[in-house]
């Protein structure tokens, strides 16, 4: 089955492809609904996802100007309250006032469209842009996170599609034509940073950006997207450990029982939440 012309690539779709091309095919091309469990501790996993969603929602509300005290009154569990207070403290010292929550940007690449949905993009005083991603799962090693599609896609899309944010063009009353964007208003990759903020630890992992990284990301992303577009067959992964946490396990005849939540790869622990947020667009209707 081939890719529809208007297919919208996201970091989670690309991550699925990198992890297992077959999973990408089943999920995005065939849109095969397969309600098997991903981990044995389904209740626990669901609860973690709920807390993550509620926490993201609170921060979105805060960014939209809802008073902090009013928001705090709606929190009804200790964990979220702890994360929330810790996050407010961190924001106070690390975030500038100009913030855009739940921003969606997209850019053409390799004949397709690539999108990114940001928890927060903050504009620093010098016009630099800081991507902040709230994480409620376990904190992974920085090296592992560096290789995730999210870390590659988010700064790349921002560099391509976020010049208007850096230029301070938040005044929507103006029409910006391409000629009107002066070269110095385009965002230079060096002006982008990405921070993952981990709620449980109250700590961050930060990545800088530069032209070399942007070029490498572009090359890699274009290669993957081109490869997906050219394929008609999508092979199953050779790393069968991944199948234990994949809902298509029975379809692929790769086992019966779901894996144990505690063994879920550290960087993937947050994934169910990320996916939900990627899919929010659908809910907009």
């Amino acid at each position: 089955m081939s890719l529809p012309a208007d297919f919208l690539f996201s970091q989670s779709a690309l991550q699925d492809y990198v992890d297992c091309p077959r999973r990408f095919e089943l999920r995005y091309l065939r849109e095969l609904e397969w309600p098997a469990l991903e981990t044995r501790q389904a209740r626990e996993q669901e609860e973690q996802a709920r807390q993550g969603r509620d926490f993201h929602h609170l921060l979105h509300q805060q960014a939209m100007g809802v008073p902090v005290e009013a928001l705090e009154a709606t929190i009804d569990d200790e964990t979220t309250l702890r994360w929330w207070r810790s996050c407010l403290g961190w924001q106070e010292h690390h975030l500038p006032a100009t913030r855009h929550a739940e921003l969606v940007l997209s850019t053409p690449l390799a004949g397709r469209r690539l999108m990114a949905r940001y928890d927060l993009v903050a504009r620093m005083e010098d016009g630099g842009l800081l991507i902040v991603d709230w994480k409620t799962g376990r904190m992974p090693r920085a090296a592992l996170l560096a290789g995730r599609m999210q870390t590659i896609v988010y700064p790349y899309v921002l560099a391509s599609a976020g010049g208007w944010l850096s230029a301070g063009r938040l005044d929507n009353t103006k029409t910006i034509s391409p000629e009107m964007i002066r070269p110095d208003e385009m965002i230079r990759p060096e002006m982008i940073r990405m921070i993952y903020w981990f709620a449980e630890e109250g700590r961050t992992i930060e990545f800088g950006y530069d032209e070399e990284r942007r070029r490498q990301a572009e090359e890699r992303l274009a290669t993957i997207i081109g490869e997906i577009g050219a394929r008609s067959e999508f092979a199953p992964t050779t790393d069968e450990r991944a199948c234990r946490f994949c809902r298509y396990r029975s379809f692929c005849e790769r086992g019966v029982e779901a894996g144990d939540l505690s063994e879920l790869n550290e960087a993937k622990a947050d994934e169910s939440i990320t996916l939900d947020l990627d899919e929010l667009e659908e809910i907009a209707f």
Partner: peptide
């Protein structure tokens, strides 16, 4: 979603129900 369209933010395409739900969810307090 035109792959050849310019890079930038996303157009919001929704219904009154979608808008109402989103706004009520955000500004609930």
């Amino acid at each position: 979603r035109d792959p050849a369209g310019r890079a930038g933010a996303e157009v919001t395409i929704t219904t009154l129900g979608g808008l109402a739900r989103r706004m009520v969810g955000l500004y609930w307090p």
